[in-house]
């Protein structure tokens, strides 16, 4: 039996819904009779078509102005919940998603289940699955609270597939009050340039770890190979913490989950906290000079070798082909 009403907190970047949002809508279609979205941003009409295509019948939309998005989302949803009584609201485990679910949980006095990787429905019971201890143990937790249930789901937990109808109907939400929380004002946005696909959307991900030796090796080894394969570059936490590359590149428990067709790990040992973020990849290739490195236990093709010797040759061979 499905739930009667499932909501998705929708996010977008430059008028395009995030893949995490489309993943949640796809799941919502499977577990809910009615699927609706809540969107907080200036361009609701622009995102409504895509949200509809992935299953949202309606989009409740609020314009945050300069206020922090998640804060406005929490206040808007709190008002909407009273009127429409959804059974379950799904959020992405994202920056704004976490702000929104956190504030909303206090407003509604409901527990939150976070870092979800699966959602199961049996009758009225909703269960969220998470992985703990670096992904070694899977834990299912079932809500025992009043509805609506609130869950934050890690991106890449579900596939995104279109299957809904036409554009979602946009319903403007007004007349809510976020109180002093609304003082959090965005004065300025800095967008850093990105070449190639986003890490979480790329078909190929090439990641570097401490084994690449020095920060100046990241560009010629990791980024260059990623570029030649039209992929994205990622990293282990060791080199993010060391300040070699920005946090946005981190793959793993406290970074991103990726599920590309091919994941190439260069000089990464394969700590459980790293592997939980990439072991869902279709194919895994690893280059590591230590034949005992744990990464080889999940690699489809493992090369026991020095990245400084192996990788430049791959790059050379790829360049020779193009």
């Amino acid at each position: 039996m499905a739930l009667s009403k499932v909501w998705v907190y929708a996010e977008a970047e430059g008028g395009t819904p995030l893949s995490a949002t489309l993943e949640l809508l796809t799941k919502a279609r499977e577990i809910g009779d009615t699927v609706e979205a809540v969107f907080v941003g200036a361009d609701a009409d622009a995102v409504a078509a895509k949200l509809g295509e992935y299953g949202a019948a309606k989009v409740y939309a609020a314009d945050p102005g300069q206020t922090l998005t998640g804060v406005v989302a929490a206040a808007a949803i709190a008002k909407l919940v009273e009127e429409h009584q959804p059974d379950l609201i799904l959020f992405a485990q994202s920056y704004d998603g976490r702000d929104a679910i956190a504030r909303l949980s206090v407003k509604l006095d409901r527990p939150v289940l976070t870092n979800g990787m699966s959602v199961g429905v049996e009758g009225d019971n909703v269960t969220v699955g998470t992985a703990i201890f670096g992904g070694n143990l899977l834990v299912d937790t079932t809500f025992r609270s009043e509805k609506p249930y609130l869950a934050a789901i890690r991106p890449k937990s579900f596939a995104a597939e279109p299957g809904g109808a036409g554009a979602a109907e946009v319903v403007k939400v007004e007349g809510f009050d976020a109180g002093r929380a609304a003082e959090a004002t965005v004065r300025d946005r800095h967008v850093e340039e990105r070449e190639g696909p986003k890490l979480e959307d790329a078909t190929v991900v090439v990641s570097g770890g401490r084994g690449i030796g020095a920060p100046e090796n990241y560009e010629p080894l990791v980024e260059e190979l990623a570029k030649l394969l039209k992929g994205a570059s990622g990293a282990s936490r060791a080199i993010v913490d060391a300040g070699w590359v920005p946090y946005a590149k981190q793959v793993g428990q406290t970074g991103k989950t990726v599920k590309p067709r091919v994941y190439i790990a260069l000089g990464i040992s394969g700590a459980t906290q790293h592997m939980v973020g990439m072991k869902g990849s279709d194919n895994i290739i690893a280059v590591n000079k230590d034949g005992e490195a744990p990464i080889f236990s999940i690699a489809d093709l493992g090369i026991v070798g020095d990245v400084h010797k192996v990788v430049p040759k791959i790059i050379e061979a790829l360049k020779a082909r193009s």
Binding site: L138, A299, G305, V311
Partner: peptide, 27 residues
Amino acid sequence: ARQEITKVEPAPARQAGEKIEDDGESF
């Protein structure tokens, strides 16, 4: 907390594939 842990199980392991020593040509 109004929630209940209903199942705990080990994560399924992924199988290892082929592992080869670099001999200069493994690229």
